[in-house]
Design a protein around this nucleic acid. Structure first.
Lengths: 343, 343
DNA sequence: GTTAGCACTCTACATCTTCGAGTGCTAATT
DNA sequence: AATTAGCACTCGAAGATGTAGAGTGCTAAC
């Protein structure tokens, strides 16, 4: 899929100029600012070719060209292939993160803020996913005669709470016994791993307390799933209003609507691949994002993917910069989380 | 501070028309739509007086009048005094809430969504404040050799977690003993109540484990305070972009910036008074909100205020409707929470 | 005290014009 | 054969102009 060296250079020039100015780029500009050795006329010919091939577009006759999604794709692939990831802000991000030891939630929110500040776009981030996390420990605590607190602790050291109301007054000994059984059956498993066999075993051992066992089990599943879909953060939404592409109120409103659809953000982040992935304009599965680009990456603990972060910006996005930053933030999160867990 | 019956009627007409249309209101409109018995000329005279008194303003010579903050204030005071709170959506809100039994967080988020949907403005809501909540129970759980999970349970049945890392490997018995001491010293108190005397007592009884006691105490305080300032939700921000007053991107950007300042939202909600309070335009303590109105109310458990909710909209806001809705949602939250706790 | 009448003001909107950036094509140049 | 200069043409952005309409304040009549 080689499009020719000179064409490639011209495409790159168009993209980079457009990223900076948000204005269609003309042949004269390219000749003057980027490729002084080539005359505007020649560039015009090449641009006609590039347009025919679908890499650039003309908003109207007699205006300059703007990159198409396909054009950006070529450009981004080049960046990704060349591992052109710059050590930009590397040091800054590192020091920023070392200031936020503490709870994981805080780390995620901090990462989100950092992403939006550094990129000047909108960041999104999901907290560690509980559905696939291994349960290290389940603890039932009796709060009062009818209330039971369920504390779930995962292998990654994250704790979540759920509450159930019971009709019988359970003795402390019984609560301890239930706790023990739950741990023996489910320790080391994730919610996804639970199958009928285990439930049968649980019920067998819970003889006489089937109703409570069921209640607890349901609450465990509900707590974990609820957490996953709701602990989604975003930051820097207001940044978007600085961009010329959002001077149109309708577009802006659509964008802000997306941010309030947690479900959608969840799906976006859930598709993030191992490393850094980029979805450009129409490549996005949601129509509403068809003139945005989304860059996502996953963070891990001990090599296991547990959540993801991302940046949403206009298709006219400074890809090199944003990819670098997302990559770097993801790397630092992984590092910190792993250290935190193993120390 | 009686401004005269007819003037009052005219002011009211101006405000109500302006709320609907967002256009300056002229004398002819009032004569035709509201006060058919009075001629435009008379109304013009009265309007000149109202303007002199500061209740209405003229954007430019030869345009209609718009209400000033002072004008809105008179209008709102009237609503509040007459207890003109309508039973609007009462039934709907009630049934909506009965669908969300479960965790308190969920309830708050749901309330926030409901507020923004019903009002078409932006809602804000804070989760129950932990700083002033009474601690019912403190539970330390050993996760592994160096990690201790702290579970805090308040009187209102809300649980929060904190984690600390310790250098010594503590035995289970010791952890239980520490748990017991912490409970004996702090049960029934709020963080705010903690004083030097208690810390001394704690240290005395924790002989030999001062460092751990201190670590736990700090983490307790930090967890509660952190929660308070960060668990602030908002919803319906995109609604604002439908309003003509936000067609100006700069104003919109400013507004969205406010929403990302959790600190500010926290302070706004923290000032909410018992019942429903209204801050109109320049009455707001933050300059950025000078052309917005904020309506807040507090929700309670067993008669004790534990958090608050609010709606932010343009000064040209349908006060009657919004005040009613905020009042009603607050009432339902209080009811549900109290029931939830006492059953 | 109220109202009709009128001259005046100001904005919003539509129309027109101009300017400049950019193009594609052709013919000359390398 | 590839490149470039030259030129006529296109189109949008921005300013200028004109007009209609909504609204006012004032005066004089009711």
């Amino acid at each position: 899929m080689n499009i020719g060296d000179r064409k490639q250079l011209i495409l790159q020039a168009i993209i980079e100029d457009y990223i900076n100015t948000a204005e269609p780029v003309g042949s004269r500009t390219i000749s003057k600012k980027y490729l002084t050795a080539i005359s505007p006329a020649t560039i015009r010919n090449e641009m006609a070719d590039l347009e025919e091939m679908g890499y650039i577009e003309q908003p109207h006759t007699s205006s300059g060209r703007i990159p198409s999604d396909k054009g950006y794709r070529v450009y981004v692939n080049q960046i990704l292939a060349q591992q052109k990831i710059i050590e930009m802000h590397q040091e800054f991000i590192k020091t920023e993160f070392f200031d936020t030891l503490g709870e994981i939630d805080r780390l995620i929110k901090h990462a989100s803020k950092l992403l939006s500040q550094l990129t000047s776009y909108t960041s999104i981030a999901m907290a560690p996913q509980m559905k696939s996390a291994m349960l290290k420990r389940i603890q039932l605590i009796k709060i009062d005669t009818t209330t039971l607190l369920i504390v779930l602790i995962t292998n990654s050291g994250i704790a979540k709470n759920g509450v159930i109301r019971v009709t019988k007054d359970l003795s402390h000994d019984l609560v301890d016994k239930l706790t023990r059984i739950f741990n023996e059956v489910f320790e080391g498993l994730s919610v996804q791993d639970i199958n009928d066999g285990m439930i049968k075993e649980l019920m067998l051992r819970m003889n006489g307390y089937h109703d409570i066992a069921e209640q607890v089990l349901l609450e465990i599943i509900r707590t974990l799933q609820y957490t996953d879909k709701t602990e989604i953060y975003h930051d820097g939404a207001a940044n978007m209003l600085n961009l010329p592409e959002f001077k149109d109120i309708d577009r802006a409103r659509e964008f802000f609507n997306i941010l309030e659809e947690k479900e959608m953000l969840f799906n976006l982040l859930n598709e993030a691949e191992n490393d850094v992935s980029v979805a450009i304009g129409s490549e996005n599965k949601y129509e509403q994002l068809n003139d945005c680009s989304v860059i996502t990456a996953t963070y891990k603990i001990n090599g296991k993917t547990i959540g993801s972060i991302g940046v949403v910006g206009p298709t006219r996005m400074d890809y090199t910069k944003v990819i670098s930053i997302v990559d770097c933030v993801k790397g630092n999160m992984t590092e910190i989380l792993t250290k935190l867990l193993n120390r």
